[in-house]
Design a protein around this nucleic acid. Structure first.
Length: 500
RNA sequence: GGUCCUGUGGCCGAGUGGCUAGGCUCAGCUCUGCAAAAGCUGCUACAGCGGUUCGAAUCCGCUCGGGACCUCCA
C-alpha cells in the first residue's frame, strides 16, 4: 500500500505524512465563533476534517482531535469601536453574553450531528482558557516579543520577522505588510501597523471582560488557538486545519506566538480547505450572501427551491476535492440529491445480498469484471492517500453502482465473482460509504411498524397483480405515491419501497 | 496597489504530458400490464493566441475573464 500524502500549505506541496509520535496523531482544527448561526460555508471544514479524522483512524492511528469553540469576543472592527461583537448582539437581543454563546453552541452541535460528523475528542472553549492565554502572553512579554500599551498587549511582528520568517505560510512579505495595512483608529498604540493584539483593554460597555496583569480586558483572537493547542497537543503537533481564509492573519500569527513560547514551529502539516462560493463569490458574512444551515435544511431561502437533507449537503461537499472552490446552487444540490440516492440505494441492496450460487451455473466466472471490481476497490485507499481525494473515491463508488444493480436484477449472476471478491465488495463498500465518507440514510424514521404495514400492502398488491386486477394494484401504488412512498416492481416479481 | 489561486462538455466537478473520471440533465433503446427504478447507448469538453515536445486540458509566455487574502471571516 502506498503512503499517505497531504498537501502542506506551509511548503505548498504534497508531502509524505509521518506522525511525530508513531501511531498517534494530534490534530487541531479552528472551530466556530459562536456569536451567530452557522452557514453552509462553515459546513465545509467540519465535513472535510471529519472525513480526514475518520480516514486517519481507519489507517490505525489514535487521533486526538481538538476543535475549539470561540466564545470570547473579538472586536468587530479593531480599534474603531472597542466593542466585542458578542456583547453587541447580546445587548440587542437582551441576552446574557454567555446565554447567547450557549444558544449558538447548541445550535452548532445540532448541525454537526445532522451532518453525521464525529465529535472532536476535545472541544475546548476560549473562555475556559483565559488563564492559559494570559500565561502565554506573559511568556511573550518576558521573551521581549510583546509590549504593553494602555492596558493592551501587542505582538512585536517586526522583531519577530527579523529572526523568523513571518509571512511564509501566507506568502506575505514584511515590507508589503507594513505598506498595505489600512489606516485604523487606535493604531497609535501599536509600534508598528503589522503588530497584532494579544490582549485588549476593555471599554466600559464591553461586557465580556476578565482581570489580567494589564487591567480588565479580553484576549486577542489568535492567542486562544495557540494556548489551547499547546495545552492539549504539545509544543509541536501533527496537523492544523481550517479554512483558507484563516491563513492570514490568524494562522500566521499563531505560528509566531507559539514559536516564541515553545521554541519550535508548532505545526508539521497545515491543511486548509477552500471556500464554498455562490455565483462565483465566496459565501461569507461580509458579502451578505450566506445561506444558514437551518435555512438550507428547511428550504427557506430565495435561492432554494426546496429543503435539502444534511446528508445531501455532506455528499455535495465530498464530491469536490477539499482544496478546490465549490460552487453552490440549487441545481448543484438537486444533482447531489439524486446521485446520493442512487449510491445509497445500491449500497443498501448490496448490504442485504448474499453470495448464493444460483440453481443455474456456478462456473461462469467473469474474470474481466472481477479484476475491474478489484481495481476499483483497491483504488479507494490510493485516492484517499493522495491528499484525501474523496471526489475520486465517489467516482469509483459510482462505477460499482451499475454492477451492484445488475447483480440485484440478476442480469449479472453473483457467481460472476468469486466469493472472496463479492465479500470484499460488500465490506469495502460499507467501509467507505458509511465509515469513512460518513454517509447515512436520509430516512431516519423508525420503520419497524411501517414495514409491517408495507409488507401487508405489498402482499395484497401481489395478489391483485396475479389476478390481473390492475385497478387494485394501481390504486395501492398511486395512493402510496401521494403519501410520498414510492413502490416499485422489481425484476423478480418482488416489490420494494422508498420514502421521498 | 501587493501576494496568490483559477478558467474543463447544458450544469456541478476529477484530472499524474500520451489511455474519452464521475454525478446531474437531455435523447434513444431494453426490461415492464402500466409506472417508477434499473441496465445499455449517444451528447467526445478543456477561455484565446503563441511556444516547448514525437505528443499538452496537463509545462512555459502573453491576452482576456473569474476569484481569494492583505480587515471580522470556514
Amino acid at each position: 500500500m502506498n503512503q499517505l500524502k497531504v498537501y502542506n500549505s506551509y511548503s505548498r506541496q504534497k508531502e509524505v505524512f509521518k506522525s511525530i509520535t508513531p501511531g498517534h496523531i494530534g490534530m487541531y482544527v479552528c472551530g466556530p465563533t459562536v456569536s451567530g448561526e452557522s452557514h453552509l460555508g462553515h459546513a465545509r471544514p467540519y465535513v472535510t476534517f471529519d472525513v480526514i479524522y475518520r480516514y486517519l483512524m481507519h489507517l490505525g492511528y489514535k487521533v486526538r482531535y481538538v476543535r475549539n469553540i470561540t466564545d470570547a469576543g473579538h472586536f468587530e472592527e479593531e480599534g474603531r469601536e472597542a466593542v466585542d461583537k458578542i456583547s453587541t448582539k447580546a445587548i440587542l437581543e437582551k441576552l446574557e453574553p454567555m446565554e447567547l454563546v450557549q444558544k449558538y453552541t447548541n445550535l452548532f452541535h445540532w448541525a454537526m450531528e445532522q451532518f453525521n460528523t464525529l465529535p472532536p475528542t476535545i472541544e475546548p472553549t476560549a473562555t475556559g482558557h483565559i488563564v492559559e492565554q494570559i500565561g502565554m502572553i506573559e511568556q511573550l512579554i518576558e521573551a521581549g516579543y510583546a509590549y504593553v500599551a494602555k492596558g493592551s498587549v501587542y505582538f512585536d511582528v517586526k522583531k519577530y520577522a527579523a529572526s523568523h520568517d513571518y509571512g511564509k505560510l501566507s506568502g506575505r512579505v514584511m515590507e508589503d505588510l507594513q505598506e498595505t495595512v489600512r489606516e485604523l483608529e487606535g493604531q497609535e498604540e501599536k509600534r508598528d501597523t503589522a503588530d497584532f493584539a494579544l490582549w485588549k483593554n476593555a471599554a466600559p460597555e464591553h461586557i465580556m471582560r476578565w482581570q489580567s496583569p494589564w487591567g480588565v480586558g479580553f484576549p486577542g483572537w489568535h492567542i486562544e488557538c495557540s494556548a489551547m493547542a499547546t495545552k492539549y497537543l504539545g509544543a509541536q503537533f501533527d496537523i492544523h486545519g481550517g479554512g483558507m481564509d484563516l491563513l492570514f492573519p490568524h494562522h500566521e500569527s499563531e505560528i509566531a506566538q507559539s514559536t516564541i513560547c515553545n521554541h519550535i514551529s508548532p505545526v508539521r502539516y497545515w491543511i486548509h480547505n477552500n471556500m464554498i462560493t455562490i455565483n462565483g463569490k465566496k459565501m461569507g458574512k461580509s458579502y451578505n450572501n450566506v445561506i444558514k444551515l437551518t435555512e438550507l435544511f428547511i428550504g427557506d431561502h430565495p435561492m432554494l427551491e426546496k429543503a435539502f437533507h444534511p446528508m445531501v449537503v455532506r455528499f455535495f461537499i465530498l464530491q469536490t476535492q477539499y482544496r478546490s472552490t465549490l460552487d453552490f446552487s440549487n441545481d448543484a444540490l438537486l444533482a447531489a440529491e439524486k446521485g446520493l440516492k442512487r449510491l445509497w440505494e445500491a449500497h443498501e441492496k448490496l448490504g442485504v445480498m448474499s453470495y448464493e450460487l444460483g440453481d443455474a451455473e456456478t462456473g461462469i466466472r467473469d474474470e474481466e469484471l472481477e479484476s475491474r471490481i478489484t481495481k476499483l476497490i483497491s483504488e479507494f485507499d490510493d485516492f484517499m492517500n493522495d491528499d484525501f481525494n474523496t471526489a475520486k473515491v465517489l467516482a469509483n463508488l459510482f462505477e460499482l453502482v451499475p454492477v451492484i444493480n445488475s447483480m440485484k436484477d440478476k442480469t449479472i449472476p453473483v457467481s460472476a465473482l468469486s466469493k472472496e471478491t463479492f465479500e470484499l465488495l460488500q465490506k469495502q463498500m460499507k467501509l467507505y460509504v458509511e465509515d469513512i465518507l460518513g454517509l447515512k440514510s436520509v430516512n431516519e424514521a423508525d420503520h419497524s411498524k411501517l414495514k409491517g404495514v408495507m409488507d401487508l400492502l405489498i402482499d395484497i398488491r401481489k395478489e391483485a397483480k396475479s389476478k390481473k386486477d390492475f385497478a387494485t394494484s394501481d390504486k395501492i401504488r398511486n395512493k402510496l405515491t401521494q403519501l410520498g412512498i414510492n413502490l416499485k416492481d422489481e425484476k423478480d416479481g418482488d416489490m420494494s419501497w422508498t420514502i421521498e
